[in-house]
Design a protein around this nucleic acid. Sequence first.
DNA 1: CTGAAAGCGCTTACAG
DNA 2: CTGAAAGCGCTTACAG
Lengths: 331, 331
Amino acid sequence: MRHATPVRIEDVAREAGVARSTAALALKGSPRLRQETVASVRAAAGRLGYVYDRLAARLRSGRSGAIGLVVCEITNPFYAELTAGVQAALESSGLVAFLANTEESRERQQLMLERFREQRVDGVLLVPAAGTRPALLDTVARWGMPCVTVVRGFRAGAHAGTDHRAGSAMATRHLIGLGHRHIAYLGAAADSSTSRQRLAGYALAMREAGLAARHLPCLSDIGEAASIVAGLPRSGPTALVCFNDTVAFGATVGLARAGRAVGRDVAVTGFDDVRAAAQWHPALTTIRAGAAAIGDAAARLLLERIADPATPTRRVIVAPELVIRSSCGAA
Amino acid sequence: MRHATPVRIEDVAREAGVARSTAALALKGSPRLRQETVASVRAAAGRLGYVYDRLAARLRSGRSGAIGLVVCEITNPFYAELTAGVQAALESSGLVAFLANTEESRERQQLMLERFREQRVDGVLLVPAAGTRPALLDTVARWGMPCVTVVRGFRAGAHAGTDHRAGSAMATRHLIGLGHRHIAYLGAAADSSTSRQRLAGYALAMREAGLAARHLPCLSDIGEAASIVAGLPRSGPTALVCFNDTVAFGATVGLARAGRAVGRDVAVTGFDDVRAAAQWHPALTTIRAGAAAIGDAAARLLLERIADPATPTRRVIVAPELVIRSSCGAA
DNA sequence: CTGAAAGCGCTTACAG
DNA sequence: CTGAAAGCGCTTACAG
């Protein structure tokens, strides 16, 4: 028996000289009680060092006060910033979040969702691992677990993200506007909605301008991007629309390795605007997707669904923004 | 009432035709039961879609199956990697982790620890926010919450980290070995054990070699490091021992901005060996502290303490390693 | 506002 | 191995 505290709500009630139910109401600040009653109960709780047992309460109320956050890769700065945004939004709500890091493994994702289920989380925020089937959402819904997909989504279901297609198209049009004609897309090797939509936005903008699209598949890894770009012939693309900032960082490293100037010889754009993008040398022209803003929106959406599961599913799209810096040569 | 499932252990017992206590034992695979009994109970649980209620179990057993992980800054790649290491270590244990991101705020840290307490976590992994007083550990101990400090620690208490002083000294000696005499330390503006120890290691190595130490305080921020370094006179230090990789990245950006060559004009070393260090241009000479390894060790230590709180406190130190790449000009 | 009572879903002895 | 019973710390009606 290692219960941290032996003080129960009944002890507080006795100390304050009220009924147990009154003490319970006072502790959660019910407006049905007199001010003094609430104050005296709270004072008693303080004297006794009472600690609310949220899990015992859950057994009766059905609310655990915890949610699950499932991300595909916590070491990707974008998702780390997203996680920080979720945490910040949760702070005022009194909820607390479990974290799961799937590393893009669907097995791990399934396992962690089941553990969260056993922990009776009130809901879950899900950045689906690559290749996740939409049916997963049905499973989770059948479990009675409110769920909001984040960044990567499906056709249906509550979702918070950005318009990947529009963002990618913006970056591409910006390069076209700077006079580039030979523009390649670098990235999008993974099987995710994000990959498909960002690539589609690039393709759309190229088609609009009557230009030929070219896709250089590349994982979200600085090293891989660097070698691909370092191997590009001088007669190759004069501009690269990159899947995300990580790939763009790799592209600049690859260009440096090949002795070519970023921006002047080859223009590069990223996507995400992670913190390092502004501090990179050269500073990265990119699409700001607002990781923290998406995390914040996702948390709010989930709280809304937890409060009223019957509410119609909403989709919140944080508008992408073009941030012009030096890597595109426009400065 | 939104309990996800109405199936209780009693229903499983009835379905399997055994007593409730037998069903409970079977579900956790007690060796006191016959193989067939266990199998038939599990089959019944499967048919009924039974989901173990870990929180209800906690009420009686005292174990919630959850721990808390409090980090000072999740958007710092080092701590993101550490978090991934903790997650990986937890995967096989069946435990799940709450995450708190303090952003170096002691108030936030206190708040989150209290929330974790209400959630009755079995223990907590703590990367103390800057300026945290050692007395916090006593408070947490009084709460009956097993705690392991991670990376940043105090004199007492279970701890998993690295030898910051030795690591910093290694980097400094390496630069001295390359012939540098005018070596400055960049970073360590924060009030943390990590800051003090890394700075001390540099000072130690300089003293050993009879060289004058020079400290350029700088926050762990690429932008700030870049401006400080860009403003250094040509007659200034020929080598910079940086607090961590982030500061080192900033130093290389600052040198590039000033038109000076990293490695040739000014040597730079980092600390942490985050993933980007190897992929940076030029690749960073740094001290590998093994974020994932520390996270793994910390999780194991905590599990040990949870299993037996009476066990004497252990301190696990992951040995730092010098990783020589190009930024020190040694390649 | 109060007080007694039931119940959330488990685990834990304990007598068979 | 089984079965009945008590209890973990709350919330939830409900009658006063």
